[in-house]
Design a protein around this nucleic acid. Structure first.
Lengths: 337, 337
DNA sequence: AATCTTGATTGAAACGGTTCAAAAGGAGGA
DNA sequence: TCCTCCTTTTGAACCGTTTCAATCAAGATT
């Protein structure tokens, strides 16, 4: 028994292939009567349109690609879920690829996705210290629908959606200063990369504004953006600097920081205030609930998807970054004024 | 300027479309000379094969679908990464869908994936208390390539890969008993579901074997398999039972348990031993490193992918569960003999 | 010089839909 | 009865590949 095609349906329903197709697509050109018949046959035969043939005809696969650094950090997991939701609302599917923060890997996956015929791409930029962006340039040259999420590559014209990270660290720092902290440090990553640069900038602005001395030594560049990274950063600088406030670049890292401080017998927040970034779901229910900057994930994702579809449908907004407001979650891990 | 097709390539290279196609596919039937020419033209034109036409011809999209409950629990994130790796080795792509532990949602996504033309499916079964499995039955009736990962639906013939969970909790419990603990409880989920049932079974076996009384009251059925769930479970039963050992069904939950115990002033492991399941990456670097059962994620994933491809290529192993060995990671959160 | 191999190339038929100009049918008006 | 105007339906072209029987060209064999 061969595959059931639309021909079989048409034959059994006593109509032409064209009519059958239109019936399937609920076209207004075919009578209600005929539609019903065709549908009945479809039911009976268990017919299902061939997606490849359909895609070929329509030149769309109704699927979009999503590149993320990975899913060990629950923040990206939450983004994935939100994105999935937003995409599904439009009856599209998501393919995902893991870049491991390497633009080389990113390029490979983009290539693979193009070979699979995705209609558009949503990319969380890899935090690669020596990015090679030819693949992205290539996409943009071909007007391939693309939006960056959570950051962007500054060398490149783009559509991007991100949280207002600078504002977040500005407010957070301001709060700490108001609470009387005077030796605040930030544990960040490579400042050449937008998401870090922006966080650092807000931090600096707050310090400057309050007449507290900002200098490079207050920004610790950590290599791993992970729990382990937070752990290690404390080992590296705590004894030397003896800060009274620590802002980590993300929550997972902040947890590593707290964990390491505790095991050294340092109390949080009595001896040191610690804050994170992202408000991942476990942050609020830690033994010491974490003060953190919440990124509006759901909003960012639906905005990104909206934007992508706008591009795909040719009603593209002008290129640029949409920055969505963050909210500082004041909890127990940090003293804030 | 229209789309560049293989015709353009063929024309410019001065060969027929058939030859061009074969050259692209590196077929041995075309001469090295010709291949080189064709490739040169491809380069020059920036030609790229149309994936839809290709899929139609080959009736394969070289992509497979992956359904998971979600990615907030880093365990699933790690699975996703491992799976991605395994799939990529075979030059395939992964589409993913989030079931939120609802078989209804699962059915929807499966449907969507079929409409996208995935070649096969890897499913982490939804932990749904009233599963509706008609969609799965349907797939199997049509011999659609499918493997379950991390569990399976017992009502259904299947291919599945999972860790030997029973053995894991058996060993873990045995260790605790050896350390002299006598009032061990397990925080689990609905025992109708395989992954929970198996964990409970190992727990029970260990207790039975050591003459410790097993009874239903030692298995606390929690509703949320999350950090919050662990937190809540302690609130619910700790004061009443006063256990000296607690085995949580997964690490995230165990962390919730520890966190709640600590905030009640109960020491871990001095007053209560706590263990988890999965060995997600943060478990080892907690303030109190977590004793846990490691599931061999990478192995499970590559095994699942192997199995799926075997099915797709018709060299299917007989149906059944492949159970991979776990290892108990003895760390500080629990006394083990 | 005629025939046989062998390897490379061609051309057309799939693959399974969608779309749209043209044809058919039916109702209403003159 | 004949003509128009609509609504439905038809049938063929098209989407861009892959595949494979048939053809071709050029040496090798007799």
């Amino acid at each position: 028994m061969g595959k059931i095609t639309i021909k079989d349906v048409a034959a059994l329903a006593g109509v032409s292939v064209g009519t059958a197709s239109m019936a399937l697509n609920d076209s207004p050109k075919v009578s209600a009567e005929t539609k019903k018949n065709v549908m009945a046959v479809v039911q009976k035969l268990g017919y299902r349109r061939d997606p490849y043939a359909r895609s070929l005809s329509l030149s769309s696969s109704r699927s979009i690609g999503f590149l993320a650094p990975g899913f060990r950090n629950p923040f990206f997991g939450e983004v994935a879920e939100a994105l999935q939701l937003a995409v599904e609302e439009r009856n599209n599917s998501l393919m995902f690829g893991i870049t491991n923060d390497s633009t080389e890997q990113e390029a490979k996956i983009v290539d693979q996705f193009l070979d699979r015929g995705v209609d558009g791409l949503i990319i969380i930029p890899a935090e690669d210290s020596e990015p090679d962006l030819s693949h992205i340039r290539n996409l943009l040259n071909h007007d391939f629908p693309l939006v960056f999420l959570t950051g962007y590559y500054p060398e490149i014209p783009f559509h991007a959606v991100m949280a207002d990270l600078a504002e977040g660290s500005y407010e957070l720092t301001k709060g700490m200063l108001l609470a009387g902290l005077r030796n605040i440090i930030m544990i960040a990553g490579n400042p050449a990369l937008i998401p870090f640069r922006e966080r650092i900038e807000g931090f600096r602005r707050a310090l400057d504004e309050c007449g507290a001395a900002f200098d490079e030594s207050k920004v610790i560049i950590s290599d791993g953006m992970s729990y382990e990274g937070g752990y290690a950063a404390i080992d590296k600088v705590y004894d030397e600097i003896k800060p009274d406030g620590i802002i980590a670049i993300n929550d997972v890292m902040a947890m590593g920081v707290i964990s390491r401080l505790r095991s050294k017998g340092i109390r949080v927040p009595e001896d040191v205030s610690v804050a994170g970034y992202d408000d991942i779901s476990v942050s609020s229910i830690q033994e010491t609930p974490l003060t953190t900057v919440e990124q509006p994930i759901a909003l960012m994702c639906s905005e990104a998807v909206d934007m992508l579809f706008a591009i795909m449908e040719g009603r593209a907004a002008p290129e640029g970054v949409v920055r969505l407001p963050v909210s500082v979650r004041h909890r127990r891990s940090a003293k804030t004024g």
